[in-house]
Each structure stands twice: as structure tokens, then as C-alpha cells.
Write a protein that binds this DNA or RNA. Structure first.
Lengths: 183, 183
DNA sequence: GGCATTGAGCTAACTACATTAGCTTAATGG
DNA sequence: CCATTAAGCTAATGTAGTTAGCTCAATGCC
């Protein structure tokens, strides 16, 4: 085993993320990250400031990943289809990485990385001629509903797994109609 | 200080709940509950099986409280007003007790206490002539959207506090319309 | 090439917490 | 009045986060 493991903050965060995916939110401990990195626990402090800091870094990566996926999903799509694409992207991210849901509702960190996701949503809403405060309300409606569905699904919060796709399709339909009709 | 503190499982859970309300989800520790009860930590094991058990008990109380409030909110109300009342009740519970939000998406315990809340929702939906699988989809739409909004709000997930009432009013409007129009 | 500086990693030690084992004793009921 | 039960205790163990301070490998400068 080499004296220098060549760790970086980024590698630590990547390891943390894979631990979250396999062991859940509560499974993320510095001890486990250190073990995965082949390093003693206190050594991690050379790269991150502690567990809260690591959590915040992981949260940023998660949010960035979701934002990227969402951004790509709406390329070349507009109107109702863009709304559906947005919602599908958000949900599918949490279906793929259910343990990451907890990082999407964290207390506001120093600099808010949610702005980027909001920007994508607002861009789509502009296709509905929704702007300014109207667009903010619409974005909240959109985010609330899709976040609610996806995080309940990720946590196993729905009784039955059956027909979840159909439920989600209907939810998207309701939202699309609501936004179109300017409720 | 009397030799017997006269603790019961119920009192332990009540103390735990008030700690959650004041110190947050992560602030709930056996050590803190014991201190509040005027008892040594291991003594709690005479009443609850451990921290996971205590959490589950707290989750049940939270869900029961929400269910009660929701049930009362829809007494003597029907149709669109009932939907709005339902949504308002859910949200206002989390506005009042934001730290309890985390207990509303827990992995399914042994016996599922969410059935009661679902029953209330389904009763309201019957006022829309929504039954069977249609009602299940509608209930999920309702719960997803209100839970998403309320838990994002509770976690400070929205950038600005201003206009949250208006945003929620619009969300309710969208959902009511969607359910009415059978999307 | 030698040497000073830097910083990555280490061990040791401390804290907080959950949990288990086993003791003590107050309350209760026959 | 005594036997039983159970509520509370102390002691001890294990895990985790964190801090302090040491060591030495890598780097760059002379």
C-alpha cells in the first residue's frame, strides 16, 4: 500500500456518493468513506472539513447531476412535451438513485446551487409565455408535485408499486393542463 | 427527585416529539430524551426498544396527528372545498411542525398506519365520484403535490418566503381542476 | 544533488451516543 | 409480611466524529 493514496476532495465526494447509493443516507459515515478510500478516518479531514461539509458537497453533486439530466431532457422539446420531459427526468433520476432524494431538500447552503435547476425550469416555462412572478408560481407548482411524487416513490411511500407509471402520467397531465389553462 | 419517575412509553414518545419540534430530526437522541425525562439513558430501554423503535413510535404519532387534523378539516365540507381543505390541513400541519416532515416519508413499518389518512382522502374523493383505481391515482396525485409543497416549504426549500400562500393557492387550483376534469 | 517547505497521511486521545448486562430497590399483590 | 415484578441504576463495550500533533513523501529551489 503506497504511503500516499493520492486522495482529493473530489474523489472523497465520489466515494461518498457511491456509499449513499448502496448504503443509504444514514450509511454515509466518515469511517466508511475512509475504508473505501483505503485511508484512516482522520485523513479525510485533509480534504473535507467534516461530515456536514461532506454532506453539503454530496448534495451539490446530486443537484448538479439532476440539473444536467433535466437540462438535456428538454433540448429540442417545447410546450407540453417539455413539461412532461422535465417531470420525467426528475422522477427517473430518483428512480435510478432513490437514496439521493434526501439531498434534494437540504437547508440552503452558502451559495445556492438550486438556481441552475430553476433556470432550466424557467426556460421551459417561457415556452408557455409564463414569466416573472407567474413563472415563479408555476415553477413551484411543478417542482412540488414532481418532487413529492418522486420522493414518496423513492422512499417506498406508496403502498403498491403497481400502476405507479400510470399515476405519474396522470399527475403530469394535471400539471400540464393547469399550466396551460393558467389556473 | 423520586426514585420512580413514573415513565411510560407514551410519555417517552411525547418527550421525543417535543425534542423533534425544538431540535430537529437529528436532535432526537436517547440521551436527550433521558435528560428531559430526568432519567439515565439506559432506563429508556424499559419503555422503548431503542432509537429505531422510538423513531417509529414518533412517526406513528405524527401521522396520527396529521390524520386527525385532516379528518376534522373536511367535516361538513364537500367537493372542491373539501379538496382545498384537505390540502390546507396537510400543509398547515407542516407549517406548524416543520421538523416532523421527515417522519411522513418513512419506510413502511410493520403495520401501516397510513391507511387511515388514505381512508380520509378516499372519502373526500368519493364526493367526486372517484372510486376504485381512479381514486387511488387521484389520491396519489393529491398527496404527491401537497406533500411535495409542504415538505419543501418546511425544509426552507423555496428561495423566498414571500407569496408562498399564493403559490399554494394556485397549486390547489391546479389539482382541483385536474381532479374535476378527470385528466 | 542537497535541502527546506509543504501537506497527505498517520496514531493517540477525547467526546457523544447507543446498547447490553447485571444489580438494586420500590411498588404491588397474595 | 413476604415474594414477585419491573423501573431505575451503574458499569462496560462498540461505533462514530473530531482534534492535536507527529512523520515523512513529494516538490521545488539553490
Amino acid at each position: 500500500m503506497p504511503r500516499r493514496a493520492g486522495l482529493t476532495a473530489q474523489k472523497v465526494v465520489e466515494l461518498a456518493l457511491s456509499i449513499v447509493d448502496s448504503a443509504g443516507l444514514d450509511g454515509l459515515t466518515l469511517a466508511r468513506v475512509a475504508e473505501a478510500a483505503g485511508v484512516a478516518t482522520p485523513s479525510l479531514y485533509k480534504h473535507v472539513a467534516g461530515l456536514p461539509d461532506l454532506r453539503e458537497r454530496v448534495a451539490r453533486v446530486v443537484l448538479a447531476g439532476l440539473t444536467d439530466r433535466t437540462r438535456e431532457a428538454v433540448i429540442g422539446v417545447s410546450g407540453d412535451d417539455a413539461i412532461r420531459a422535465l417531470m420525467d427526468a426528475y422522477r427517473s433520476y430518483l428512480v435510478e438513485f432513490p437514496n439521493r432524494a434526501g439531498f434534494l431538500i437540504s437547508p440552503p447552503p452558502t451559495v445556492d446551487p438550486r438556481e441552475d435547476l430553476l433556470a432550466v425550469v424557467l426556460a421551459v416555462l417561457r415556452g408557455y409565455r409564463l414569466e416573472g412572478s407567474e413563472a415563479i408560481h408555476a415553477a413551484r407548482i411543478l417542482r412540488s408535485s414532481v418532487h413529492g411524487f418522486a420522493s414518496l416513490e423513492a422512499a417506498g411511500g406508496f403502498g403498491y408499486r403497481e400502476d405507479l407509471d400510470e399515476s405519474f402520467r396522470r399527475l403530469a397531465g394535471v400539471i400540464v393542463m393547469g399550466l396551460r389553462e393558467r389556473v
